[in-house]
Simulated scan of single mutants.
Amino acid sequence: MTTTTRRRFGIAGALVGAASAGIAAAAMAKRYAVGRIRLRPDLEASEPFGELGGSSHTLITSDGVALHVEVDGPKERRPPEEGGDDGHDAPLTVVLCHGYCLSLESWHYQRRDLREHHRVVVWDQRSHGRSQRAVSGDTSIDRLGDDLAEVLDQFVPGPCVLVGHSMGGMTIMALADRHPELFGDRVRGVALIATSAGKLAELTLGLPALVSKAVHKVAPTTVSMLGRRGSLVDRTRHAGSDIAFLLTRYMAFGDSKNVSPTLVDFAESMIRATPTEVVADFYPALMNHDKLSALHVLDPVPTAIMVGDQDWLTPPDHSRAMAEALPKAQFIEVPDTSHLIQLERPGAVTDALRDLIKRVGV
């Protein structure tokens, strides 16, 4: 071996060694960060996430997709001999619509607290949770609005309050756009939580302007490519569980230092359960969503608009824009709170919903 060859091997070895050391250091730092977080006091460690009971139903939509729906409330948990039924005589139903890459379980706290006195309907949007994948079906926001109309038709016999988080709020806006006749009589109140009426493609995601612009430029192609290789990506997603934990904690709960590790795990499990192909299917619909002109349909009903001041996914400016379009709406900005506000600040969200129900006055 010549001196030059030995030198080249030595340089290559040094580079490989440095890279390996860097990877090992990054892995140790990641484990250290996750370990420190998990060692903090966890007030939610015993919370029965995913274990709330109710009656389960299946709704076949007009385009053939099976939606998972659950009905809950005081009568739902009583045996028939004590008057248990579907609660069809309840004066008001609260319908909870979840967000992108989540499921009906994301309403854990609100369902737990509201069902004591109200009939509650929760449902998994198409391709999410336990609802059927819309393999060849429509994954537009408009179609989600039509799905909600069918949920109301089958499971809500009387007046209701609609509550939507993130994509769920967009679903309600699509319902208003496509079925305005429902608002005022059937739909008596609306809560739009951590959501947007449009222009999501302009989000900075908490990044510097130039970096954010570059991310948005490559995101559609990247998401589409991942979607085409979805099954392969899904097989490897579990391998990055610590990274997923940290990303979920940062993007969904912001800078909060007191968020429960159990709660982060719960949120991350919902996100991980969403197939990569579904993430890719709905991404263009979210980026193209524009329903600001439909908000006037909500004018006749009490409306609450709620957002965390540290929400980077649907920032406060988007909620303020909706509040400007709905000057009679109650606007609530919760300090030190990020995107998964209903999990991070459940008491504040539930209190806002109770106040909205009082304003509805049914």
Rank of each mutant, 00 (worst) to 15 (best):
D265I: 10
I11V: 15
L210Y: 06
E105F: 05
P180S: 02
G206E: 06
E81F: 15
G168M: 05
S127E: 07
A267P: 03
D147L: 09
F183R: 02
D309T: 13
I60P: 07
E181D: 12
H128A: 09
H117Y: 06
E76W: 09
M167E: 10
L247C: 11
A214T: 12
L226W: 07
G361R: 08
H289R: 12
L207M: 12
T58L: 12
G230A: 13
S319W: 01
S269G: 10
G17I: 00
S131M: 06
R359T: 13
T222V: 15
L286P: 10
S196W: 01
S224Y: 03
L200C: 08
R143W: 04
S103K: 07
G17Q: 09
S269T: 09
V264W: 00
C160N: 06
A239Q: 10
D242F: 05
A12P: 04
T337S: 15
K199F: 11
V349Y: 01
L39W: 07
P327K: 05
D355C: 10
A191Q: 05
G347V: 12
V34D: 01
P346A: 00
M1N: 11
R320L: 13
T303C: 14
K75A: 14
A191G: 11
R354K: 14
E181C: 05
A239G: 08
T276W: 07
P300Q: 02
A348C: 12
L313E: 04
G158P: 05
G99V: 01
G206R: 00
V16L: 15
Q132C: 05
L326F: 08
A294Q: 04
V156S: 02
A285H: 10
H108Q: 03
A348G: 03
